[in-house]
Amino acid sequence: MICASKLAVSYPYIAQLRITDFRSYIRRDLSFDGRPAALFGPNGAGKTNLLEAISLLSPGRGLRRAKLEDLARKHGETSAAYWGVNATLSGADETKLAIGQVPDAPRRRTHRLDGKTATGTTIAQQIAVMWLTPAQDRLFTGPAGERRKFLDRLCLPGHPRHGQHTIRYEKARADRNRLLSDGIDDPFWFDALERDMANCGAQIAMAREDTVATLMEQVADRPETAFPKSTAIIEGEAETLFRGGADVHDVEAQITAWLAGDRSRDRRAGRTLRGVHRSDLQVFHAPKSMPAGDCSTGEQKALLIGLILAQARTQVERNPARPLALLLDEIAAHLDERRRAALAQELLSLPVHSLMTGTDAGLFEAFGDQAQMIPISESGS
């Protein structure tokens, strides 16, 4: 185990992490003291695997969006029977969280809180997890679906049921699409599925609009830094209704009417053509009044970091007693010295548990002795 001296930090954090038969690891134990943690080592050492393990404490499929059965450690052509992730949160009671794969059902995940069976929503109430990965660097120029996923991840810390609403909506939409493509014209089935889509769609749109509105307030209130301010707006019919002052019941009724009125058109297309599954997050470089997608690669990275830092501050203000783990994979690799220093300053001022990865300890020099430096050299031990 890599040990760290205990520091009197004023915010909750992940104190202990243990993973077993996960990715490249047979078993790995880490201790943290609450300072920003820099996990450094060569490519392939397993740094991102550790962040991925932590990301699975939040709803969804983690920062790599991997299938549960693909997470178990592989040895040749065989895989471990199951994997597990255990985390102990700081505090007088040392809350213990555990998630893992069900041995006899590799596509199912178990959750435990202080040794007792729990739900994913219950775990999400104990800790919030946010992340940035290199795969998100082209978020603003990629497909709208990637921006929706990013936005929905931002919603989760403030709206723990958002993931459940999204899953229910997508299931109902898939069922409706099957009716459309199969040429089935049964009002009873359409009415039932559209009610579910409308109910969940309204909740999804409300969470998105609330998240972006609160985020923009946070961005506007902070001073200018090396990470430029952004403006963001959701392009979506349901979200626009909330922005105009409609309540959730009005939006649900409107979505129901849209779906019912679109059945003939959707039947010709074989799919549902409108809804919250078509919404898009538009981000702009505020000082330049320029779409983020038109900015340079470095500016896009800086805008993305600025957004995630603002969201972290928002969540801390909303729920200061809940630990927030901020996972930043290869965060410093493509930042110049000025922005590395600015990032260090931002993270040191945030009452969150930041965990970063990088290939070299020198990438984190700006932290001085205020970061916990953890070398990662062997992923299988």
Rank of each mutant, 00 (worst) to 15 (best):
G62V: 12
R178E: 14
A257K: 12
D360G: 02
T214K: 15
Y11Q: 10
D221L: 14
C3H: 13
Q101W: 00
P12K: 01
A220N: 11
R208N: 07
R278N: 06
N86H: 13
S181A: 14
K149C: 01
L68H: 10
A124G: 08
D93K: 15
A118N: 06
A361T: 10
A207F: 02
A128K: 11
A4G: 09
A371T: 08
A80I: 08
R64M: 10
R267L: 13
S24G: 12
V9W: 04
I308N: 05
T359Y: 00
P12E: 11
A371L: 08
N49E: 05
R107K: 13
H111S: 07
F32M: 03
R278G: 02
G163S: 06
P351Q: 09
G62S: 07
Q370I: 06
L151R: 07
I331M: 11
K6D: 01
Q16W: 02
P157K: 07
D262C: 01
P323C: 03
A144C: 05
F227V: 10
Q254F: 01
F284S: 09
V85D: 05
S230P: 02
R243K: 13
T297F: 06
A72S: 15
I308A: 04
R263M: 00
L241Y: 03
H162Q: 11
S379M: 08
R28S: 13
A332R: 04
R318E: 12
S5V: 12
M197N: 02
I374E: 06
T166H: 09
A310N: 10
A332D: 06
D21G: 04
R178L: 14
D182T: 12
A37P: 10
A105R: 15
Q315T: 10
K149Y: 04
F188R: 14
G275W: 04
D247P: 13
A205S: 14
A312I: 08
R168E: 04
T357D: 07
A366L: 04
K301F: 00
E252A: 05
Q254A: 11
P160W: 08
A366H: 04
A66F: 00
S264T: 11
E146Y: 01
L151T: 07
R109D: 02
A220S: 11
M1T: 13
K116A: 08
G201V: 00
D280L: 05
E224L: 05
L68F: 13
A172Q: 05
Q370G: 00
F227C: 06
Q16R: 13
R278P: 00
A238I: 05
A128D: 08
D191Q: 15
A246W: 04
Q164T: 12
E69W: 07
A124F: 01
T117H: 12
R278Y: 00
L132A: 11
D21M: 01
